[in-house]
């Protein structure tokens, strides 16, 4: 009986769009999942907001490279990136400096004090006036070779990396600290509050590979086992696991990716 009940919950969770905060939200198309619209100062400067697609960047760089080494906050629009910061070589311009190479190409530069009509075409690669068709096509061809997933970007990123489909850069010379080999704690079994709900198998190895320690500790979770007690409601509000799994990493309606332990009894 319990199993039927739990299966029903999982089925409902997997098929119904989450209705949080009393608002029914549409399920984002895979291309848009993880997208952030950055609009702290753009419009004041007479430019459209920046459209940042996580899928494009996470296919090339680890989470901690951007969120720890370069200093982007994990909450949308809270970094408050200014053009002057990019001109001074930080944030986006750490890589987008017109010098750094990626896959044999120079990464286009971000922001300038003055720009010509021709250079404005570079501005609108981020400050998008209209949907970027080229990027859409790029996504379609990128997804073709990736292991399929039902939710989020439609890509099983973890499997993709394991199978060598992409290799995330984790170090930038002169920016990233030296990273000695990490002593990763063992996987953990987390008990669910709902009776009959499978326990969560939490893998430190999988998370630390992209995030290191500091991305989660102690900001999201205290380092001490048992000190972080949280509910699914809080996760759905974007706290704890929800900080990433509501926005960028595989979404919360993919229940079985976390609640994966065999049901007892």
């Amino acid at each position: 009986m319990n199993r039927v009940f739990v299966s029903l919950i999982l089925l409902v969770g997997a098929t119904v769009t989450w209705a949080q905060d009393g608002v029914i939200k549409r399920r984002l198309p895979p291309f848009e999942y993880g997208r952030v619209i950055i609009n702290n100062y753009s419009q004041q400067a007479g430019l459209p907001p920046v459209v940042f697609d996580h899928w494009l960047h996470r296919s090339k760089y680890s989470c901690r490279l951007c969120h720890l080494d370069i200093g982007f906050s994990m909450v949308a629009n809270s970094t408050k990136i200014r053009a002057v910061d990019n001109i001074n070589g930080v944030f986006c311009a750490t890589c987008h400096n017109g010098k750094m190479m990626m896959n044999g190409s120079i990464i286009f530069p971000a922001c300038a004090k003055e720009y010509t009509r021709e250079e404005y075409k570079v501005c609108v690669r981020c400050h998008q006036l209209e949907p970027n068709v080229t990027l859409g096509k790029k996504f379609t061809s990128f997804v073709k070779n990736m292991p399929v997933e039902k939710f989020g970007n439609g890509i099983n990123w973890e499997k993709a990396e394991r199978e060598g489909k992409f290799k995330a850069v984790d170090h930038i010379e002169g920016v990233s600290p030296t990273r000695p080999k990490m002593k990763v704690p063992n996987d953990m079994l987390l008990k669910a509050n709902l009776e009959g709900m499978p326990k969560v198998i939490f893998s430190h190895t999988k998370h630390a590979a992209w995030g290191g320690c500091k991305l989660c500790h102690p900001g999201l979770f205290s380092i001490n086992k048992g000190r972080s007690v949280y509910s699914m409601d809080e996760i759905l509000e974007g706290k704890f696991c929800g900080a990433c799994h509501k926005t960028v990493a595989f979404p919360l309606n993919d229940c079985r990716r976390c609640h994966a332990a065999p049901v007892e009894g």
Binding site: P177, R179, K181, C213, I223
Partner: peptide
């Protein structure tokens, strides 16, 4: 010094 400080976070638990 920053390199020293932040270069040890991966083994901070031990």
């Amino acid at each position: 010094e920053l390199e020293d400080v932040c270069g040890n976070t991966s083994e901070a638990a031990v």
